[in-house]
Amino acid sequence: MIDMNNDDFTSRAVSDTAENDRDWSALRYVLGEMSPAEADAFEEILATDQGARELVARSTGLVTNLWEVAADAATAADSRNASVAVGMVEVAADRVRPADSAEFVRRRSERFRGWAITGLVAAICCCVAIGICLIPLAGPTGLEDIYSGDLTDNGAGHLVAIWSQRLADLAPETATTESAASERSELPLTSEPDGSRVATTTENAAADSAAVEDQMAADDADVPDWMVAAVEVGEGRKPDGSSSLWEN
């Protein structure tokens, strides 16, 4: 049984309440919860009351400890994040770091060789593709002639035609002479009033005929032997383009 009279109980209750109020005032002062007037009044108490000063010190210690718990938790979280960040940096560094200089050179050579082969193949493919695309645009060519039915043509005759054209280009004067002779042969016989003109025309015609024969003889002499041989071979070719010479 607790021996306690009413006066003691009342005084202790009042004392506890007063102490609680002082604790509370000290805490509010430390936390800045007081109005300026309240703070000034409390500081007047602090100027003279050592108990109030010690309460302020105790409240400050309590609040500081509570904040340190939060600061410690924040620091732990930061260090965890920092550890994760360091780990990520190390992994990234391992990914970009060459393992060894000799190994690095060897890998680089292999890589370069692979790229060179790949590039070469790609260039060849591009050239082939471009060539295939350009063939239809190029028009008829000698190569096309060969592959597109010229085999059915008389190749030797074509060759003679080309040769004749070349000769015509190289001998314009000869062509002019022939043209003049042609013009003279086409002149009307009645254009001259006298008969001397007719006689002269007859003589000129005979002379022209002799000249043409001489020219043809000269042309025959200008045809090279290999062309003659080619013509003979062409005549021996079958209608389907195949040559009997290859079927011995």
Binding site: A26, Y29, E43, V56, A57, T60, G61
Partner: peptide, 12 residues
């Protein structure tokens, strides 16, 4: 130490 706490509470 106690005095520092008190002064910290006053000055923040």
């Amino acid at each position: 130490e106690e005095l520092r706490l008190f002064l910290t509470g006053v000055l923040r």
